[in-house]
Every structure is written in structure tokens, then in C-alpha cells.
Amino acid sequence: MSAVAAQYDALQALGVEVFSVSVDSHFVHKIWNDEELSKMVDGGVRFHMLSDQAGNIGRAYGVYDDQQGIEMRGRFIIDPDGVVQAMEVMTPPVGRKLAETVRQVQAFQHVRATGGKEATPAGWEPGKPTLKPGPDLVGKVWKVWNPSME
């Protein structure tokens, strides 16, 4: 979670509200922040750390493991209309790469800003060419994009 805290400024700059969720109480969140996370990231955790002790939120998002009573590493990007645009769910031993979340948010924000008229090809980052789906592009993507541009 310290990795998310370290990317908080980048996410804030994109207007993204961050919520972390685990089955721990909010009291334990406080102690974890005070005792450990604040020593790993300047200023500690500055986003809301939610407590889901009954696992109800985790069940609603399909990440609650009732055998172990814990939640998997699930990351969801929700747009301003409240629609889930992206999800990534991993088992506990492998951590996330937050830079990829930032990239996906930038891409979804770009698509939204164009009213869905543009799509972003694989590996797209701001400044790179987008695709403009339409009859002219069918079978002709090769003219405007290929994997070496990723």
C-alpha cells in the first residue's frame, strides 16, 4: 500500500480519488500508517483507508476469499458516471505496478474527453497517436499503427 501512497500525487493530479480496502478495522489502519507506512512514504497515507471487516465490499467486487477471510489484490478504475472501466485482480504474493494504473486512467480520460471518437492502441501514453475507429480504418490499422510504436 506504500506504493499506492507514493503515487498518490500523480493520481491526484489526474483528479482520481483513491480508496484502499481491507478486512482490517480502521483502528488498525491508523496504527499501520503511524507505525510503518509513514516511515516508507513522506507524509504517510493521504487517501481514505476503508475497513471492510464483514467482507461485504470485497464480495460485491468479487475479490473476497471466504476460505482465508481476506481480500485479493483487486484494483478497479471507476469513471465519473460510476461505471467500472478497468479491473485487475491478483493473488497476494505479487504486488501491483501503479504506473500502469496511471497510464490506464490517462487513456480512459482521453477516450472520454473525445466522446469515444478515439481509441488508444496498446501501450498508449499521452502524446502518442490514437486510433479513430470508422469505416476508413477497417483493415487499415497497419497504415497508422504497429507494435513498434508501442
Binding site: 480519488e17 484502499s20 480496502v21 481491507s22 467486487y61 483487486g74 478504475i77 465519473p80 501491483r96
Partner: peptide, 14 residues
């Protein structure tokens, strides 16, 4: 509503 939200679940504190 009206904001982008990132929701991050994780196995547990500590």
C-alpha cells in the same frame, strides 16, 4: 459521483 475513483483491495495491514 462525478469523480474518477481508484479502488484498491489488498490482503491485510502489516
Amino acid at each position: 459521483a462525478g469523480k474518477w475513483v481508484m479502488l484498491c483491495f489488498y490482503p491485510g495491514d502489516f
